[in-house]
Design a protein around this nucleic acid. Structure first.
Lengths: 252, 252
DNA sequence: CAAATGCGGATTGTATACAATCTGGAAAAC
DNA sequence: GTTTTCCAGATTGTATACAATCCGCATTTG
């Protein structure tokens, strides 16, 4: 089968007719790619601390747990590798990645830049419905903290930030913010172990909503920066407790 | 046709895992994941315009072209999908993505933010060896432009920017810059079709080196912004010529 | 003659078998 | 007793066969 494939050729019918529709109302119940489901669920498990750093991820094992075949698991692992959540060595398999303090610091520097950018281009004023949604998500977040429900905390926090930055209108920026955040999913459990950090996050969210409502952009920017600060610090403290504080910011 | 006799050997001395002889420049049989090689080479082909937007990418066909099995090709396609270079629809396959002007504008906004960040944190002064490398790469870029060698232009440009931003020292930022750049690989051929754009890029590179050498940060930042500007504009012009200029600033 | 419909080929999704390679430890050699 | 060698198990990498799905076309039907 060279380049023939008769009967199927029309690769580009969109000549001068219509611009490519980016969001076809294709709301058909098309099952999502199974591999992505596996990747997503693995992400969740890593976030929740159910998979510890340096834990091995065996393909066959995951097949059983997610009820699928190795092909999909394999794709999911490659995806998570590219996301930076796991590490893969040829012929040896995959393991949950263990980030060094230096890497964490660098990632958070990028996150700050991106999220501040979102805060800067976010068009004011924000619609009332959006504000209401932010408040609802914030309430959920607070409730989860009070209940000690780490899973709930994670998701409520995630959704709050998605909603907030989603207001900026730049899809690529939203996606990039998300990707950067995913890189440190694996260490969230360290940061969230401290109740003070959680409390502070809760207060930050309240203040952010206030700033958004009032259209005080610089305040929102400052809050965004401050909000990100405690997390790498908490991780680094935990890291040093684990390995001894001999290492400040060595090996890249 | 029956291009599946990729690795069918039975009596080979089990020494060198004997990759299929049509294996590309990959001399080391045990280094990189084969799937990533396929993904990289597909990226290249898209950049060079050998794969046009909306062109279909058939797994079996790619197997023959890259001399591997569908498993690897499949992983490569998933990877390129997540990178934003291609689009996949379940049970229907993959095609080279066709970006709308809005998407391109958004991507370039993010690129600007990230590259400016790199310029800002780049530690001065820059070592002489690094400056020499930048100049060598710039020369290569200019030579490729003069020769009309688009492949050479692409790689020289890529390497120049990698070297420049690589000086910033933040691995995550470097990677994020790279990812954002990859999203618009598919439209590079449009921008590079114009000789003026290429000429300007060449001059920009020269000026950037000067600014780096002199340690003039603000100048470098300004150049970085200016350098990115013509590309989305060129694409949008080409897009409007293709589909009619009925759509200047649609949705949003 | 227009519209609905069913068929055949092409392509992806799924499953499984097999080969290559790595890890760890036991046995052998010194 | 220490080091080396080699084997066995485990795990990933590779190949291929089969099923599910989709697309275009021809046939049928009103």
């Amino acid at each position: 089968m060279g380049a023939d494939r008769t009967g199927h050729r029309k690769q580009a019918p969109a000549r001068v007719s219509a611009p490519p529709r980016e969001a076809p109302a294709d709301v058909r119940p098309r099952r999502p790619a199974l591999a992505h489901v596996v990747a997503t669920r693995l992400e969740e498990e890593i976030v929740l601390g159910r998979r510890h750093p340096r834990e091995r991820l065996i393909e066959q094992e995951l097949c059983g747990q997610f009820g699928t075949h190795r092909g999909d698991v394999r794709i999911a692992l490659f995806e998570l590798e590219k996301k930076g959540l796991i590490e893969r060595v040829r012929n040896r398999g995959a393991m949950v990645r263990d980030l060094t303090p230096k890497e964490v610091t660098e990632i958070y520097a990028v996150r700050e830049e991106l999220e501040v950018m979102a805060a800067r281009i976010l068009p004011f004023p924000v619609a009332g419905a959006d504000l209401a949604r932010l408040e609802a998500l914030q309430k959920k977040h607070g409730a989860a903290i009070d209940a000690g429900d780490m899973l709930g905390v994670f998701y409520a926090n995630l959704h709050f930030h998605q909603a907030l930055f989603g207001l900026c209108g730049n899809a690529c920026l939203i996606e990039t913010i998300e990707q950067a955040a995913q890189k440190v999913y694996g260490i969230r459990s360290y940061a969230n172990a401290s109740p003070q950090v959680l409390e502070r996050a809760r207060r930050d969210h309240v203040d952010m909503i206030k700033a958004v409502r009032a259209g005080r952009r610089e305040e929102l920017v400052a809050l965004t920066r401050r909000h990100l600060k405690p997390q790498p610090e908490a991780y680094i403290r935990a890291y040093q407790r684990r390995f001894g504080s001999a290492m400040g910011g060595e090996s890249e």
